[in-house]
Design a protein around this nucleic acid. Structure first.
Ligand SMILES: [Zn+2]
Ligand SMILES: [Zn+2]
Ligand SMILES: [Zn+2]
Ligand SMILES: [Zn+2]
Lengths: 151, 151
DNA sequence: TCTCTTATTGACAAAGATTCTCAATAAGAC
DNA sequence: GTCTTATTGAGAATCTTTGTCAATAAGAGA
């Protein structure tokens, strides 16, 4: 029969208690090692390549948890898959070419502050953000113009 | 045999000439009508509901074109689908609760300028951006704390 | 207006990504 | 150790997005 000793101190209406497992640690570590954004599938491959027998579903679950906990940021790739990045990684944003995919890293101290301030002002905690700028790079720009597809 | 009179003025190495079709117009219109972000599937449903016999693939293709042309912004939903929004819609950003999904609209004139400036400075044209802030709203925050799942 | 070339479309298949199911396993508390 | 149950892995099941291809119809030119 079930023990109903709930009132002690760490769960009740909320979610059940989380457990620490080597799988979660592995995903977290792998995400940290990765440079830039990576997909769940990629991480799974990497982990297996390093000997882990972790399941794909677990990678997805862990990544989703990390994102929800604000420990990872996610982004949508052109290839219709979700990419993740550890939040600790030197934080920066991207300027991406809609045509060729060229990506430049952007830093903006003020922006970081602004984002956190907005969140805080509205009573939100553990703020994080997704900021990406898109456009057509100089190269693709001229390529288009030259080929007559101009304006 | 093919006519090779290319050199006249509007295509050559680039893409073939685009054509205007009622389908494209319909998607564009539906996207404009929509309030906020919508998925390709949603738009397809809406269009069919309004009598259109447009194909799902066409909706996807058109949406992709619009996004590429900078006429629509896209965003990744929690439900792993891509959401689109007509660029004309009064532009603003979102502060989203990672727990309950509560979404607040954020406006920031300076930010818009900043984003466009960054793009321009790096030689990019037709700039657009995705800026979203995440966090846990006050309600979800206290809910967690109370339930002991706190920190 | 009539023709001709070919971009576009729609239905369906195919590919992928993400989630679900469930029996087996193993944290974590006692 | 023992017990409860969160977590896991494998595979099925879903679902979103893309590719295929014959049929259709813009748009340019006659
Ligand atoms: Zn480019
Ligand atoms: Zn930032
Ligand atoms: Zn909330
Ligand atoms: Zn903006």
């Amino acid at each position: 029969m079930k023990k109903i000793e709930a009132a002690n101190a760490a769960e009740m209406p909320g979610q059940p208690a989380k457990r620490n497992t080597p799988q979660k640690a592995a995903v977290k570590h792998a995400l940290g090692e990765a440079t830039g954004f990576v997909s769940a599938q990629q991480l799974h491959q990497t982990l297996k390549k390093h000997g882990s027998t972790i399941g794909l579903a677990t990678v997805y679950r862990t990544l989703a948890d990390l994102a929800q906990a604000g420990e990872a940021d996610s982004l949508q790739s052109k290839d219709s898959e979700v990419l993740y990045r550890a939040c600790t990684t030197s934080h920066h944003h991207h300027l991406i070419c809609r045509e060729c995919g060229l990506t430049l890293e952007i830093e903006a101290e003020n922006l970081e502050k602004w984002a956190d301030k907005v969140a805080t002002e509205h009573g939100f905690v553990q703020p994080s953000h997704n900021i990406d700028i898109f456009g057509f790079c100089a190269a693709c720009q001229s390529a288009k113009t030259e080929s007559g597809v101009a304006k």
